[in-house]
Simulated assay, not measured.
Amino acid sequence: MAPRIERLVTSGQFSLDGGTWDVDNNVWLVGDDHEVVVIDAAHDADAIAAAVGDRRLTAIVCTHAHNDHVDAAPALAERTGATIWLHRDDLPLWQQTHPDRAPDAWLTDGLVIEAAGADLTVLHTPGHAPGAVCLYDPGLGTVFTGDTLFQGGPGATGRSYSHFPTIIDSIRDKLLVLPPETEVRTGHGDSTTIGAEAPHLEEWIKRGH
């Protein structure tokens, strides 16, 4: 049985640097009828657990540690026994939301997370956050980009722990080299493709300066 991709949209708030915003987040589930991985446990552990159903949840993979992407991770892990994965460079951000609960395992560039026939390769793509990662599966023709790349451009870099030149380097060196037909499944909003976004790199650079 081939792995499939499911999207759940959850709603909550993103808080950083003294500001708070209402947000809708994409929670991605990758797996089959028996086993699944969750990418970004956002806001609502009950809704995510319902989407997982009676499948075995093997991993909760955090694309970065902004609170709106990790706030439901500990509760979901407690219910399911799943391992929480995060890049070590995002630990300071994680601790703002979960000071008393550390991640279970560390993501590193090139690591492969396996589930139900899917092979999600970790691409370290700092810029939006120091430990931001994307997850690429050539077999699925998909890259999960968290808040690194959206339809229409890079993720925001105007707040603490972010850096515009770094996100541009990450997108150019790690993402735009992927096949143009690769589907880009984002942390918020609609999906896009590498081919749709690649021609706009210079435009983004000019816009960011």
Rank of each mutant, 00 (worst) to 15 (best):
T80K: 06
D32A: 07
T63G: 01
V38A: 03
V30E: 09
H128A: 03
T63Q: 01
Q13A: 15
S11V: 15
D17I: 12
G110P: 09
I113S: 00
R101P: 11
W106N: 04
W21A: 13
T108R: 15
W94S: 08
A51K: 14
T83S: 10
T20R: 14
V23K: 07
T97C: 00
G110A: 05
A41R: 04
L123S: 00
A47W: 04
S15F: 00
H87Q: 13
R7P: 07
L107Q: 10
T83G: 05
A75D: 15
V9P: 07
A75W: 04
V61E: 03
R79C: 13
D32R: 06
W85I: 01
L16A: 11
A65V: 03
H87A: 15
P99L: 03
L111K: 04
P74F: 02
R56M: 08
D44P: 12
T108F: 08
V38R: 01
P3Y: 07
T121I: 06
S15C: 01
T80E: 10
G81E: 15
T20P: 06
A102I: 04
R79E: 13
I60Y: 01
Q95W: 05
W94R: 08
F14H: 14
R4K: 13
L57Q: 02
V30P: 12
S15T: 10
H98I: 02
T125N: 05
D89Y: 02
G18V: 13
A65F: 01
C62Q: 10
R55H: 08
I60F: 02
C62I: 01
Q95G: 04
A75G: 11
D32K: 05
D54Q: 12
V112A: 08
D89A: 14
L111A: 11
W106E: 13
N67V: 13
R7N: 12
D68N: 15
I60H: 00
G127Y: 06
G131T: 10
I48W: 01
V30R: 06
S11D: 15
P103Q: 05
A102N: 12
L93Q: 03
D22T: 14
W106P: 11
V122T: 07
N25A: 14
W94M: 11
L91I: 14
H128T: 13
H128P: 02
A41T: 08
G110T: 04
Q95H: 08
C62M: 08
Q95N: 05
D119E: 06
L107M: 04
D71T: 14
D24R: 05
I60A: 00
L57S: 05
G110L: 06
T125S: 02
V37A: 15
V36K: 09
A41W: 06
L76C: 05
A65G: 02
